[in-house]
Amino acid sequence: MSIAFLIIALVTLGSAAVAMSLRNLIHSALLLIASWAGIAAFYLWAGAEFVAFAQLLVYVGAVSMVVLFAVLLTRQSRVDMAIAPDALRRIVAALLAGGATLGVLFGAVVSAPLPIAASATPVTVSVRQMGQELMGTHAAALLIVGALLTVALLGAIILASTGREDPPGVAPPAVAPPTRKTS
């Protein structure tokens, strides 16, 4: 356990914990991003340069945008959770999903043969080696993941494109009568 590891872990876990407890969704999202950056720092500390930068690029650079967009575009409502009729079902679903993920991860970590490196020089993998591994040994996995993501993307496009039939440049259709409420 080095000091660096402690700091990184503290930052990562701390920002994640604070993110969950904050009421301001934007702050939570930014802290979540900080947490991702912390994970990238951890990879860097562990010597996985490529993974660290990829983590930064993908999570801090791209996924964060999606998260922020989602937060901005979702209407914020404090009462949502409390008065939702299916609150219990949601909680159960959340517990189930979380538990399953935890179980899979835990199982993977436990079953993986992790050699405790005695030396101070962990194995380093160059980008080239990694590329060869990915396109060689694990090509099938890569392809499957790629196909899966493509399908997901197409699904998202189809979902998003339905209901956008009206051509641009036309005033939005009248949905509700113009009611003006003031308080």
Binding site: F53, A54, A62
Partner: peptide, 9 residues
Amino acid sequence: LYFFAAGAG
């Protein structure tokens, strides 16, 4: 990769 990762912020 580092360059673009750093710029992503």
